[in-house]
Nucleic acid binder design. Structure first.
Lengths: 207, 207
DNA sequence: CCTTTTATGAACACATCGTACATTAAAGTG
DNA sequence: CACTTTAATGTACGATGTGTTCATAAAAGG
């Protein structure tokens, strides 16, 4: 009862015109919920992400949201992962120092950018109060990224650029943690951080 | 109209029995608000800290709260600072490595403890969404503590235990940042962190 | 075609937000 | 001491958000 067209094998709906009761395909609902949540998160921050507004924005009913997600934060985290690009590989040019500087610079650029960085900061903030968000963030975002960095360091150990006894997790904690420390705790501009020196320190430390 | 006694020169009120309208001494109101907020924060976390509940718990009216504080988070931050011990000095035994390990160990013990650490974690989380909390946390807690650590490192530079060209802020970011990284981002147990090695790395890095 | 699954609108009691109002008492001033 | 200013008071309000219940309707899948 709502307009549906088939274009190149892809179903294209016009859900915003839809009236009346009834069930819609789960995938469509899900996608609209995540889109609406991403929009709310981007425009109004986490304070705008509530069950009520997501329901209004997405057209989904509150009942549906409560059935599938435990908290607004959980939807926000999922919406963020769905709308951001999949994780890049950790580049390996053979030059460990340069690769680490490149990755850290990209990270700092991302979180320093007012528009792109704010959802990240706010989601991390929400994670400190909502365990569901914490679990999602750690499992989907933070731990996989640490693993990528760790693997790059392991490769460097095999090629002899890095000592075999180096504590790789600790190195990652030091480098990324230094950035997060300024971003979340001190709230000082990240542009003053000397990334090249940060990498130099961490590599020299581990031998 | 409410019972007031003087004991040893100190005014002792019985505000919980107080009925009727009228103004109470500002200091008393303030102190009760902060006490009530600290209680709420400790028992129910930041989710329990609302203007409404603080008003009910403290006996102060909502109007008063709105007049003096911009957000529940701001009251929570102030209540936390008021109820926690004033900042300790950074010890200087002459042994830089040992002093850093001692401070970091105390810090890790504090934030790892479920009871004492949760308010800290949740306040840092709130700071990512509420700028007033961020400002209070950075100014009252984080920046002064970094300054203490920095001064200890400066002393070490004068005694020659640390190279003159070492980037002290970066060292602090590395050491404390590594802890925060595990606490806030990765959400992995801090007890697995080798603090001795962390300090060794950071000192070796800076020369 | 028929059954199961799942989304739907409507409604509810409740908490919280943020603000407004007239009232009243403490603190400061003469 | 009386008088003025300042600031906290109870009450009330509309708006928003929470979390749940209910009967109903439509898609999915055999």
């Amino acid at each position: 009862m709502y307009d549906v067209f088939i274009k190149g094998g892809v179903l294209v709906g016009a859900p915003e015109q839809r009236k009346g009761r009834g069930r819609r395909p789960s995938a469509e609902v899900r996608s609209e919920v995540l889109n609406a949540t991403a929009r709310l998160l981007l425009n109004g921050g986490m304070r705008a992400v509530t069950f009520e507004r997501i329901a209004k924005e997405s057209g989904a009913s509150k009942t549906t949201l409560y059935r599938w997600w435990p908290s607004p934060g959980a939807i926000a985290a999922e919406a963020y992962f769905a709308s951001s690009e999949p994780m890049l590989e950790f580049p390996d040019t053979g030059d460990l120092h340069a690769d680490l500087v490149a990755q850290l610079t990209a990270f700092v650029d991302l979180v320093s950018d007012e528009k792109r960085g704010r959802p990240i900061t706010e989601l991390i903030g929400t994670a400190q109060i909502d365990p569901k968000v914490a679990e999602a963030w750690s499992r989907t975002y933070a731990l996989p990224r640490r693993e990528l960095a760790r693997q790059r360091l392991q490769t460097a150990q095999r090629t002899g650029q890095l000592g075999a006894e180096a504590d790789l997790d600790l190195m990652v904690d030091q480098m990324w943690g230094a950035c997060y420390h300024r971003l979340l705790i001190l709230k000082v501009p990240l542009k003053d951080l000397n990334i090249d020196r940060l990498v130099t320190y961490s590599l020299r430390a581990a031998g």
